[in-house]
Write a protein that binds this DNA or RNA. Sequence first.
DNA 1: ATTTGATCATGT
DNA 2: ACATGATCAAAT
Length: 223
Amino acid sequence: MVTAPSSIDELMQRCYRIAGFTAGELAQQLGVSLPEHLQREKGIIGQLLEQVLGAESGSKAEPDFPHLGVELKTLPINANATPLESTYVCVAPLTNVELLRFEDSWVCRKLAQVLWIPVLVEPNSTPAERVIGQGFLWRPSPVEFAQLKQDWEELMERIVLGGLDDIRGTHGEILQLRPKAANSRARTAAVGADGAPIQHLPRGFYLKASFTKQLLARAQQLA
DNA sequence: ATTTGATCATGT
DNA sequence: ACATGATCAAAT
């Protein structure tokens, strides 16, 4: 059990100390084991880093470090520093959505300050062999904020107008809306085009990998 | 049921 | 080859 960091400085110091270790080494220090593959426990690396760094919000709809206002995200990358996956941000509200402003949205709150931890994934390697990279703190620049806001507003407008069936991952420059559910038969409350309540496949906001690649490249330039 | 942590695996 | 759509487990 690692205590919560009392400051962002302390959090970053912990990041510097774990950079270069493998996930297997960190797991061993905590006395936990990692699976041979991630087909089932897909989020285990992220949860390992939460433990190592002292995050405590668990599955609650809060930033990982509530008192610091910092969200923790692992970023799986290849040897060329290219992200292997998009990054999940949060679920998309499908009801009571008309008056929501971007500044009050979960997307805006979660992405206000993100601690990115790149994790090197070699082809055909096991989870334990993944190498923890140098974490970096990100706050959206004015341009990035405007991009996020524009994408969010476009996607939310589609939700409000009831075009849920027509929303696909291709919409949005850096932020996209994709299914986020146990399976394609899952249903949650939503609002139809005529304003009537309907049931619909839950969706989540994701950052496209092309965007997180830019974040990483910029951080490595500064380093 | 929902949100967290994400990656899997199919379609294009 | 790549992104989109689909899926898995734990916590609450």
